[in-house]
Simulated scan of single mutants.
Amino acid sequence: MSVSDQIMKGLLDGAILGLISHGETYGYEITEKLKSHQFPDISEGSIYPVLLRLSKKGYVNTRMVKSDSGGPKRKYYSISESGAKELKIFTEKWSKLNTGMNSLVRGDLNVK
């Protein structure tokens, strides 16, 4: 697994929690929203293991909804209270890391 793949894997939890925090959603919709926000090479197959992990940790709530078109039930995800707390921690850590990485990439080596 390349470094960029490892980075993406680490960021997906926070990205998905961030999307879910804006309102109840389902897997395919999450995939499409990530793609629309320029996340590279995101597939439904990479989203569902993350959703399962977030659910097992208690960060998201799930509910099954019957399809209007007669298809299979769809699982909807919403953020839990502990998920909102985890998202806040992730956002704070990401902000600091992002600031540091941007500084290094720009060559701001004399920053204190």
Score class of each variant (00 low, 15 high):
V65W: 00
Y76F: 15
P40V: 07
D5T: 11
I47Y: 08
Y26K: 01
Q38K: 09
S2R: 11
F90D: 09
K88F: 11
S36V: 03
S36F: 03
Y76N: 09
T25D: 00
L97M: 08
G100V: 02
S95Y: 13
S43D: 13
G27E: 01
E32Q: 12
H22G: 09
G83P: 02
L104C: 00
T62F: 02
A15V: 13
D13M: 09
K112H: 10
V3A: 14
K75P: 03
G107Q: 04
E44Y: 15
G27M: 00
K9E: 14
G45N: 10
P49S: 09
G71W: 02
D5H: 12
I20T: 08
S36G: 04
E92Y: 08
S4A: 11
N102L: 01
R106E: 01
K73D: 13
V105N: 04
N110S: 10
L51G: 07
E32V: 05
E29F: 04
I79Q: 03
L19D: 11
F90C: 04
L12N: 10
S78Y: 04
K57V: 04
K73W: 01
A15M: 15
V65E: 11
H22A: 08
E86M: 12
T99G: 04
K56I: 09
A84V: 03
N98F: 13
E92L: 13
K73T: 06
S69C: 01
P40N: 07
K73A: 07
D41I: 03
I20N: 08
K93A: 14
D41W: 03
N98L: 14
P40A: 08
D13L: 12
I30H: 00
L34F: 06
K57H: 12
D13C: 12
L52P: 04
G100S: 12
S103F: 01
M101I: 15
T31P: 05
Y77H: 12
G71F: 01
L87I: 11
R63S: 05
L19E: 14
G10Y: 11
